[in-house]
Design a protein around this nucleic acid. Structure first.
Lengths: 372, 372
DNA sequence: TTGAAAGCGCTAACAC
DNA sequence: GTGTTAGCGCTTTCAA
């Protein structure tokens, strides 16, 4: 009726092109009611016809479908969500250390999650928040309150992760990439970081190294913790001395790796090999090494962690531990959807065995003590 | 009442711990009605009190707020959205060429958009779809139908971009990173790619190069088109001959750059310089060059495009054209929010001037004809 | 200053 | 098979 009036009293007279500001009006979406009115049947029947219920006559169904198509009907998701009390949306709160971050970790994870979500009919809501910030907490609070998203992905788990305790307390559906030391049980996928460090250290020892330094990920991150622990264990297992000066905490960025490498090389007693907590730092670190006039892979062995796609394209190519981020994203997505739908998970706790990728940066076999 | 029954007939008897499956129930969120009932006032008043309307008595307001806090009230966004007919959500359909993509472009853009969106109170809905696929089309169709998101970001615009024509036709709010050749007007931010190619070619010419090859971005992408055009123009401006064999279309990945470089070097008449359509290809390309025994930055000059954060960390460091992706994302986000709220944009069409970043890969000045 | 009523668009229980 | 009724949780006239 309202619309009728508008059309009838159009300023331009009939047949004359409307000014563009009419567009807003014309964008009024068709609803079930429009179809119902058009066909002279009830909204309910239209709803069920479209949903393919068996208790709707075949020919009514066909007529409904036809007018729906003609009118370009698309269901109003918001209304449907309100009614069904689920959003069919998965949430992902990206913990970015710096605002202008650019970590391949996230884009790869996003791809894995996103593809899987799309193919399962779920949307993905992404929020960018600094780890530990008030805003981050607020975002989790909002999620846990319900109605925002049906479930959450938690990545880069922290040693004492209040995000996770919060979600556990609220009994909100979520899955995590990584474990924690919190006292709660939740579904996760993680890579056995400690085992990864073991592998790379064994590799370096095999090559003749014993003076091995470690540029660790932040220790508040659970995988940082595991990698550091793994470092100590592996060194002990090989009867190697660990010098505290040879362990530096990095910030996961290239820049951080560069600085760390340089301060390591500025020591009077230099290591002959450096393991970096992630590939980004390793790549930056190799630059730092070059800047001091040494050659990574020749004068200093370098190892990374993650096997990001660029790691085979740097010079020297990076020896690293593979972490199948894309697959983990995909898998976590499947798990989360199962959790949301209260299906039993076949595996609630997945611990993946890492693979060592040997490339050039770890260099050839050396004679003990042959380095400067 | 329903719940009452459940509680009253609980199997365990009173005082006995409930089985964990009760949690689902306990997660029932507090609504306005709960607060209203608690206070013995109407839902309307609660709603307005919380919204801070001036026509609610100060002390009622305070009491409302207090119980809201106590009960841990969070508004049900879905209900609010249905009522307000806006989602406060921005959409971003990520066109990933390969499923397991890892393009720093996207994570940086996402960071820019995401931070801005968060600070403006908007959510970001991300969907991952192969460019040109049926699914991608469906996603845009759904968006244009309304109710899914309030506005869209379109990135990596295509020469003939049906996403854009669709959105224009439907008069749906969106902004684009890039222009198109479609016959419609829309708000965008773009970098002057042609000017960028000009700069890098001038730089190479200054260094003594004349045999310049180009590994172009896909020509269906608008910025690919511009960069190719820019290449021809700049070569013409410098009176340089363009050999068709020296122009190869790449796929924007490292692998693609590597292959392209190798086929270029396999020619009997080799270029002395190669410009790549983006940094990822340039990095891969440098690897391809090394694989044939030549040194990028010494035997062959290399230029990239984008200035991704890794480009200063590869060896040799990459001479490239800067593209401030993060800032563009931020700016586009502001624009989109303005479009959604029907505010006049100060600038509907932004064309940024690129900056040349000279590093090592373009090498030193050469004598004409001094290369093998 | 507060409340009753209507409605956003959809689905579902329950008649008929 | 189809329609009636109710309701998801919220906002917003309009009266009181």
């Amino acid at each position: 009726m309202y619309i009728r009036n508008v059309l009838e009293t159009g300023f331009g007279g009939t047949g004359v092109g409307f000014p563009t500001n009419i567009n807003r009006e014309s964008r009024m979406a068709t609803t079930l009611r429009d179809i119902a009115r058009e066909l002279g049947i009830s909204v309910t029947t239209v709803s069920r016809g479209l949903a393919g219920y068996s208790d709707v006559a075949e020919d009514t169904k066909a007529r409904i479908q036809a007018t729906a198509d003609r009118l370009g009907y698309t269901p109003n998701l918001t209304a449907r969500r309100l009614q069904k009390r689920r959003t069919d949306t998965l949430g992902f709160i990206l913990p970015t250390l710096t605002p202008r971050f650019s970590d391949p970790f996230f884009s790869e994870f996003l791809a894995g999650v996103g593809n899987e979500a799309a193919s399962r009919g779920y949307d993905l809501l992404v929020s960018v928040q600094a780890p530990g910030s008030t805003e981050e907490r607020a975002a989790y609070e909002r999620a846990a309150a319900g109605g925002w998203v049906d479930g959450l992905f938690v990545v880069r788990t922290r040693v004492n992760d209040e995000r996770i305790t919060r979600l556990c307390d609220g009994n909100f559906p979520f899955v995590a990439f990584g474990r924690t030391e919190c006292d709660c049980e939740f579904p996760y996928v993680d890579e056995d970081s400690a085992a990864g460090v073991h592998q790379i250290i064994t590799h370096l020892v095999d090559l003749g190294h014993s003076a091995i330094a470690f540029v660790a990920p932040p220790s508040y991150l659970m995988f940082g913790r595991y990698r550091i622990q793994g470092f100590y264990e592996a060194m002990a297992a090989h009867n190697l001395e660990v010098r505290e000066k040879w362990i530096i905490e990095g910030d996961m960025t290239q820049r951080g790796g560069e600085t760390a490498a340089q301060s390591l090389l500025a020591l009077t007693e230099r290591p002959t090999a450096i393991i970096f907590g992630n590939d980004l730092m390793a790549i930056g670190g190799m630059n730092g090494i070059k800047a001091t006039g040494l050659q990574p892979g020749v004068d200093i062995a370098v190892g990374g962690f993650d096997n990001i796609s660029l790691s085979s394209y740097v010079t020297p190519s990076l020896t690293t531990i593979e972490q199948p981020i894309y697959d983990i994203g995909q898998r976590l997505c499947t798990m989360l959807i199962d959790v949301i739908n209260e299906r039993e998970l076949t595996e609630r706790h997945v611990l993946l065995s890492p693979t060592l990728i040997v490339r050039d940066s770890s260099g050839p076999r050396i004679q003990a003590g042959s380095r400067r």
